[in-house]
């Protein structure tokens, strides 16, 4: 089966004081049609930047994608294509929902306007009336009561959970093949979080949409993802089936993340936290980027960046511990 989205050796550079600094680098992954890929990592590890680069939404005045990077969607390259070509992909082929539903909808335009606008941008032959019918049925699908009334309302009249449902309805209204959900539940309270995840999951099955779920919440990943990719400081450190990651995590960073989830069964007085914090792009170590925080780090880790080492069929870790030659 050929992948829907294939990203290879993605490097994203940001301008800092006239110089371009590499932030995300060597990121390779793929998303198959209809599957859910979870991308996990701490804040600032490049998850959102990676997703924005796929959408072509990186600010072009101070960021760029390096030449060797490839992003292929359905066999088409998305690197260096024109704004016009990208517009035909955004929304129609790849749609995105964002972290904060409170600020992601335009406060001075009605819900209906914002949704109809998107449908008609991709299908200009549709009348306003026909587009409205589509959005009303979409709004009903995402569980919005009195959808006919809601389309004339403004975002501030709705709760956060409702707004995220509207974002989801909007994102799916052009029937995209890939949905990028950038921390879709972070800004919502816990009961709503579960509902939103459930909704994404059921709609994904209904429309056979592939989902890239970006989150820092491992519990979310466990609930909905087929495969998981763990990112740290702009690189992919581990990738595998969800079960591999949860039961047999290999990379010290993934293990650290899993250990820092509080558990109900064990009664422990202190949570294991990973010491230190993610370095800024200028301070990335020349070797393994996790080395300064890693309990197993040796001199080799500081000096040479590790490659991806295969653990099992679909399970990879970027750590010297799993190389043939070992850490030393």
């Amino acid at each position: 089966m050929s992948a829907l989205l294939q990203v290879e050796d993605l490097e994203i550079l940001f301008k800092k004081k006239k110089e371009y600094v590499s932030t995300v680098s060597g990121v390779t992954f793929h998303v198959n049609p209809g599957e859910t890929l979870g991308i996990v990592g701490e804040s600032g590890c490049g998850k959102s930047v990676t997703s924005l680069s796929i959408m072509g939404l990186l600010p072009d005045n101070y960021s760029r994608i390096s030449e060797q990077s490839t992003i292929q969607y359905n066999g088409r390259s998305l690197v260096g294509i024109s704004e016009r070509e990208f517009r035909n992909i955004r929304g129609k082929e790849i749609a995105m929902i964002f972290q904060d539903p409170m600020s992601s909808l335009n406060p001075v335009l009605t819900i209906g306007y914002q949704m109809v606008e998107m449908i008609r941008a991709h299908e200009p032959q549709l009348s306003k009336k026909a587009a409205e019918e589509i959005i009303i049925s979409m709004l009903k699908k995402v569980g919005i009561p009195r959808a006919e009334k809601i389309i004339d309302e403004y975002p501030h009249q709705l709760s956060g959970g409702m707004r995220q449902r509207i974002m989801i309805a909007m994102a799916l209204s052009c029937n995209p093949k890939l949905l990028i959900a950038d921390e879709p539940t972070t800004a919502l309270d816990v009961t709503i979080q579960a509902q939103i995840l459930e909704l994404i999951k059921s709609l994904q099955q209904e429309f056979n949409t592939a989902v890239m779920l970006i989150t820092h919440d491992l519990a979310v990943v466990a609930e909905v993802c087929d495969r998981v990719m763990v990112m740290y400081a702009g690189t992919v450190v581990e990738e595998g089936q969800a079960a591999d990651i949860f039961n047999e995590a290999k990379h010290p960073y993934t293990i650290g993340l899993l250990n820092s989830i509080p558990s109900l069964e064990e009664n422990i007085s202190r949570l294991d936290a990973i010491p230190g914090s993610v370095p800024s792009p200028e301070e990335f170590p020349s070797g393994c980027r996790f080395a300064p925080r890693c309990p197993h780090a040796t001199e080799k880790c500081y000096n040479q960046p590790p490659d991806h080492y295969q653990i099992s069929d679909h399970h990879f870790a970027r750590c010297w511990l799993y190389s043939k030659e070992g850490v030393n």
Binding site: R87, N88, R90, K92, A95, F98, L105, N106, H122
Partner: peptide, 8 residues
């Protein structure tokens, strides 16, 4: 950003 992501 949302508006741009819609492809308008």
């Amino acid at each position: 950003r949302t508006a741009r992501s819609k492809g308008i």
